[in-house]
C-alpha cells in the first residue's frame, strides 16, 4: 500500500533551509549527487528539509501499511475457503512486514518508531486516505487487491530509484510482494465476475465504490501539489501525481472490461489521438475531507490502532523488563 504526499502546505522552502545556514558547498555537493542519481545513505550529509520531507513521506507510507491491515483484516475470519483465508492472511501479514521495514528505513533518519506511532495516534501524521473506506463484502477484498494494490505498484515502482538508499531498498522488497497482492485481488474479482448473479453484483458494487477513491490515491492534481517540484528535484518522487493517475487509468480500464464490469464514470472514453483514456472530474472536496480524517470509517480505523497500541503497552513493558533482567543477570555473571 502507498500514501502519496498529503501535506497541503509547502515544505519549508530552500531559502529557509539556507537560513538554517547549511554550508553551501555541502548543499551543492548533495544536489550534484542526487542529480547524478546516486543514493544518499544514512550517514551522509543531507539538508534538514530533505530529512524532514523523507521522514514525513516514509512514516506516512509505514502508517498506511499498518492502518491498511485493518480493512482487509476485517475479512480474514470470513474468507470463503481455506485457500482464500491463507492467501488473505499472508497478504495482510505482508503489509505488516512492509510497515516494519519502512519504520526501520525512517528510523535511519533519526526518528524512532514510537515517535512516529505517537504522531499517528495524535492525528499529526497522515496515512493513505483509501483505508478510511469500509470493506462491505468479500468483493471488496478483490477490489482492494486489484485497484488499491494496483495503484500502489504504480506509485512504488519508481520509488525503487528514489534518492534515499534505505527507502529505495525497502521499496524493492515491497514491490515484489505487491504484484502478488494485485494478482490475488484480480483473481478474486474474476471468480466473482464470472460467478453467480449475486457475486457479480457484489463485484460491480465494489468497483463502483473503490474506483474514485483509488484515483484519489495518487494525490492532489499537480497544480495543487505544492511539494512535487522540490520532491522531484530531490528524486524523492520520480513522476507527478497526474502522470501516475493517467497511467493507472490506462492500464486498469481494459482490465475492468475483461472482467465484464463497468467503470463508474460516464465521461470515460478512449482518445485515439493521445492514446490515453479521458476521465471525469475527481471530487477533490471528498479527498480533502478524508485527508482531514473525515472518511467514512476514519474513526474506526484510528480507534482500532490506538486500542491495539494501548492494550499492548503491558506486553511491551513486560518484554523490556524481562530483557533488562536478562541483561543484568548476564552482567552479574561476567
Amino acid at each position: 500500500m502507498y500514501t502519496t504526499e498529503l501535506q497541503k502546505q509547502p515544505s519549508r522552502p530552500v531559502a529557509e533551509s539556507k537560513a538554517e545556514k547549511e554550508p553551501q558547498e555541502l548543499v551543492d555537493a548533495f544536489e550534484a549527487r542526487v542529480a547524478a542519481d546516486e543514493f544518499i545513505e544514512p550517514k551522509d550529509w543531507m539538508p534538514a528539509a530533505y530529512r524532514r520531507t523523507l521522514v514525513r513521506q516514509i512514516s506516512q507510507h509505514a502508517h498506511s501499511e499498518i492502518v491498511g491491515m485493518l480493512p482487509e483484516g476485517n475479512w480474514i475470519c470470513r474468507a470463503p475457503s481455506l485457500r482464500r483465508k491463507a492467501v488473505l492472511l499472508a497478504k495482510v501479514q505482508d503489509e505488516g512486514g512492509h510497515g516494519l521495514y519502512l519504520y526501520a528505513a525512517a528510523e535511519t533518519l533519526g526518528t524512532s518508531r514510537e515517535e512516529m506511532i505517537e504522531a499517528l495516534h495524535a492525528g499529526k501524521a497522515k496515512y493513505s486516505t483509501i483505508f478510511n473506506y469500509p470493506t462491505l463484502t468479500w468483493a471488496d477484498i478483490g477490489a482492494i487487491g486489484w485497484l488499491v494494490d494496483g495503484a500502489a505498484i504504480m506509485n512504488q515502482v519508481p520509488l525503487q530509484r528514489t534518492s534515499y538508499g534505505p527507502y529505495a531498498r525497502a521499496m524493492v522488497r515491497v514491490c515484489k510482494e505487491e504484484s502478488f497482492h494485485q494478482r490475488q485481488g484480480f483473481e478474486i474479482m474474476m471468480a466473482m465476475a464470472n460467478g453467480t448473479p449475486e457475486q457479480k453484483e457484489m463485484a460491480q458494487d465494489a468497483l463502483n465504490r473503490w474506483w474514485w477513491p483509488s484515483l484519489m490515491m495518487f494525490g492532489p492534481p499537480d497544480d495543487e501539489s505544492p511539494n512535487t517540484a522540490q520532491s522531484m528535484r530531490w528524486r524523492i518522487k520520480r513522476d507527478t501525481n497526474d502522470e501516475l493517475r493517467q497511467h493507472f487509468v490506462d492500464v486498469t480500464v481494459p482490465q475492468a472490461e475483461a472482467l465484464g464490469l463497468s467503470v463508474p464514470d460516464p465521461k470515460l472514453k478512449f482518445n485515439d489521438k493521445t492514446g490515453h483514456y479521458e476521465f471525469g472530474e475527481i471530487d477533490w472536496s471528498e479527498f480533502w475531507n478524508v485527508v482531514k480524517g473525515e472518511g467514512p470509517v476514519a474513526k474506526e480505523r484510528m480507534s482500532a490502532r490506538v486500542k491495539a497500541w494501548d492494550e499492548g503497552a503491558w506486553v511491551r513493558d513486560a518484554a523490556a523488563a524481562h530483557a533488562a533482567k536478562q541483561h543484568a543477570a548476564k552482567q552479574a555473571a561476567e
Binding site: 483465508k85 492472511l89 499472508a90 495482510v92 501479514q93 505488516g96 516494519l100 482500532a304 499492548g312
Partner: peptide, 29 residues
C-alpha cells in the same frame, strides 16, 4: 489467531501470530 491480525501488541508479534495461523491453516487443509 487470524482475529489478532492487525491488532497485536507490537508489529513483530502480530507477524508471528499470523505466521503460526498460516502454518495451522496449511495443516488443516
Amino acid at each position: 489467531l487470524s482475529a489478532w491480525c492487525g491488532h497485536g501488541p507490537m508489529l513483530e508479534v502480530d507477524l508471528s501470530m499470523s505466521n503460526i495461523g498460516l502454518d495451522l491453516i496449511g495443516q488443516a487443509a
